Computed example of a mutant assay.
Amino acid sequence: MAGVMDAVNQRTQLVGQNRLELLLFRLDGPQLYGINVFKVREVLQCPKLTMIPKSHPVVCGVANIRGATIPILDLAMATGSGPLQDQSSPFVIITEYNTKTQGFLVRSVERIVNMNWEDIHPPPKGAGRDHYLTAVTRLDEQLVEIIDVEKVLAEVSPSPETISQGVIDVETQARALSLRVLTVDDSSVARKQVARCLQTVGVEVISLNDGRQALDYLRNMAGEGKDPAE
């Protein structure tokens, strides 16, 4: 498995290319899933887990990995499919989101693929609002479902979406009322979290899905003679 992650650091240098890397994996069954490599720290065979009393149902336990105690979440169960059935030789994907480190239990890990954002599409409209997908794509004639990890974590361990009193002084908050911030993230949950946090201090927020949308937005502003910095 070391071979899968050998080039992660190099392959996440995609700034300005409107591309992303996906780590492909499977839960139960043949369906292929993806997760953004940019937020993956490492992949390893599932280590010994220690159960934690009264933990969230999707938390399988905690593992000691390189001296750190990391919670391990059953990703199949977290996305509504029930507990992972095939745990004969599962893997753990260690990730970092919102300054938190956690592992996701999966049945198998396939490979890393480099995708163009133009090939990434929103989830089908008929999927409703309760799904855990941030996008879908096709690879070798197979549908790949890209997991919205931020949504999973928001349900298991919610992060505060407001700024604590005393962090922002009166002068800073007054200045914030004149600011407009462009945020870009493929997760709708992440976009909403950032927007709510900024809006609590009066910042105007424009939220977009990816770098291409952001570039088009800025180009349109420039074409209309507007200064994006103002």
Rank of each mutant, 00 (worst) to 15 (best):
L139V: 03
R196T: 09
D130Y: 03
S55N: 06
S207A: 15
P47W: 06
T79N: 04
I146L: 08
R41I: 11
T183V: 14
M77K: 15
L14G: 09
S188D: 12
S89K: 07
I70R: 09
T183Y: 07
I65R: 01
D140K: 12
P158E: 04
T12A: 06
E141C: 11
T134P: 01
I146C: 06
M1L: 12
A222I: 14
A127Y: 15
S178D: 12
I70E: 05
P123L: 07
N98F: 02
V58N: 06
I147E: 10
I147S: 08
T137L: 02
H56I: 01
S187T: 01
S108K: 15
L179C: 13
L44H: 03
K151M: 02
V149K: 08
E145D: 08
R41E: 14
D148I: 06
T200R: 05
S88V: 10
V194I: 12
G80E: 09
E171Q: 13
E155V: 00
R26L: 06
Q199C: 03
M221G: 03
G223P: 04
C60H: 04
P83M: 01
P124F: 09
R66Y: 05
L179E: 13
G67Q: 02
Q173N: 07
Q17N: 11
G82P: 01
G16Y: 00
L22K: 02
S187C: 00
S55A: 14
A135Y: 08
D86F: 00
I146A: 01
M115F: 06
G166H: 06
T50R: 12
S187G: 00
R111Y: 11
K100E: 13
F38A: 13
I112C: 08
S159R: 12
V58W: 10
C60A: 09
T12R: 13
L23M: 06
N36E: 05
A176D: 02
N18E: 13
S207W: 03
R107I: 02
A190T: 07
D6C: 05
H131A: 12
A229N: 13
F38G: 13
R180C: 11
L179R: 14
V92T: 14
L20H: 00
Q31L: 14
D74K: 09
S157G: 05
F38E: 12
M115D: 02
M115S: 03
Q165H: 09
Q13E: 11
T137N: 04
Q87V: 15
Q102G: 04
I163K: 01
L23V: 05
E150Q: 05
L105A: 00
D148F: 07
V201H: 00
Q165W: 00
V156K: 01
R212E: 12
L32K: 12
L27H: 08
A78Y: 05
M115L: 11
K192Q: 12
L133M: 13
A63Y: 10
V4R: 11
